Amino acid sequence: MLERVREIVASIPPGKVATYGDIAAMAGASTPRLIGRILAEDGHDIPWYRVLRANGTPAPHIARRQLELLRTEGVLADRDKINLRTYRWHPNV
C-alpha cells in the first residue's frame, strides 16, 4: 500500500492537486486518513503538498507551507482554499 500511494502522489503533475480521498480510491486504501498518515510518515521526498482535503483546503498545521509550494506551481488559493474544479488532477487510471 505504501509504495502504491507514493507512486500515485509522485505522478500528480505540477500545477495539479488531488484529494486524500482521490488517492485512497486509486490506491485501494480503506480510508483517506490512511493517505494522510502515509504522507506524514513517508512522503517528504514526493510532492505531498499536491494532496488536499476534500474541500480543497490544506491541513491547518501545514497550510502556509503547502499553499506556498502550490503557488510556485501556479496553483492559486482563494482564502486558503484551492478550487478543485480548476486544479484537480484527472489521471487516466
Results as ranks from 00 to 15, higher is better:
residue 69 L to E: 13
residue 19 T to L: 03
residue 91 P to L: 01
residue 60 P to I: 06
residue 26 M to G: 02
residue 42 D to G: 01
residue 76 L to E: 14
residue 53 R to S: 11
residue 19 T to G: 08
residue 62 I to P: 07
residue 14 P to E: 13
residue 42 D to H: 13
residue 34 L to Q: 10
residue 62 I to D: 15
residue 90 H to W: 11
residue 48 W to D: 09
residue 92 N to D: 14
residue 44 H to P: 00
residue 72 T to N: 12
residue 83 N to K: 04
residue 11 S to P: 01
residue 43 G to N: 10
residue 10 A to G: 05
residue 60 P to Q: 08
residue 21 G to I: 00
residue 60 P to D: 14
residue 5 V to Q: 08
residue 26 M to S: 00
residue 25 A to M: 01
residue 64 R to D: 13
residue 37 R to M: 12
residue 30 S to C: 01
residue 24 A to F: 02
residue 88 R to I: 09
residue 49 Y to I: 04
residue 69 L to V: 01
residue 47 P to A: 02
residue 31 T to G: 00
residue 49 Y to C: 08
residue 50 R to E: 09
residue 58 P to L: 13
residue 56 G to L: 02
residue 29 A to C: 10
residue 7 E to K: 06
residue 85 R to I: 03
residue 6 R to A: 06
residue 21 G to Y: 02
residue 74 G to V: 10
residue 59 A to T: 13
residue 81 K to P: 00
residue 34 L to P: 00
residue 48 W to I: 02
residue 43 G to C: 09
residue 69 L to C: 08
residue 84 L to W: 07
residue 36 G to C: 07
residue 77 A to G: 04
residue 64 R to V: 04
residue 43 G to L: 08
residue 38 I to A: 12
residue 55 N to D: 15
residue 50 R to H: 14
residue 90 H to V: 09
residue 12 I to V: 15
residue 24 A to K: 03
residue 77 A to K: 01
residue 25 A to D: 07
residue 12 I to R: 05
residue 82 I to D: 06
residue 67 L to R: 05
residue 60 P to R: 12
residue 13 P to W: 05
residue 84 L to I: 04
residue 85 R to E: 13
residue 73 E to D: 13
residue 92 N to G: 08
residue 63 A to Y: 05
residue 5 V to F: 10
residue 64 R to K: 12
residue 5 V to P: 08
residue 73 E to L: 05
residue 39 L to A: 11
residue 28 G to Y: 05
residue 52 L to P: 05
residue 93 V to S: 12
residue 14 P to L: 07
residue 64 R to F: 04
residue 65 R to S: 12
residue 27 A to F: 01
residue 89 W to R: 12
residue 52 L to H: 10
residue 63 A to V: 06
residue 1 M to A: 14
residue 11 S to E: 02
residue 8 I to E: 08
residue 89 W to K: 14
residue 86 T to V: 14
residue 84 L to A: 08
residue 36 G to A: 06
residue 90 H to L: 13
residue 34 L to V: 06
residue 32 P to F: 01
residue 93 V to R: 14
residue 34 L to I: 10
residue 7 E to L: 01
residue 9 V to N: 06
residue 70 L to Y: 10
residue 21 G to H: 02
residue 16 K to G: 04
residue 22 D to Y: 02
residue 25 A to V: 01
residue 18 A to D: 07
residue 6 R to K: 14
residue 85 R to Y: 12
residue 90 H to D: 12
residue 15 G to C: 08
residue 87 Y to N: 11
residue 41 E to I: 02
residue 90 H to E: 14
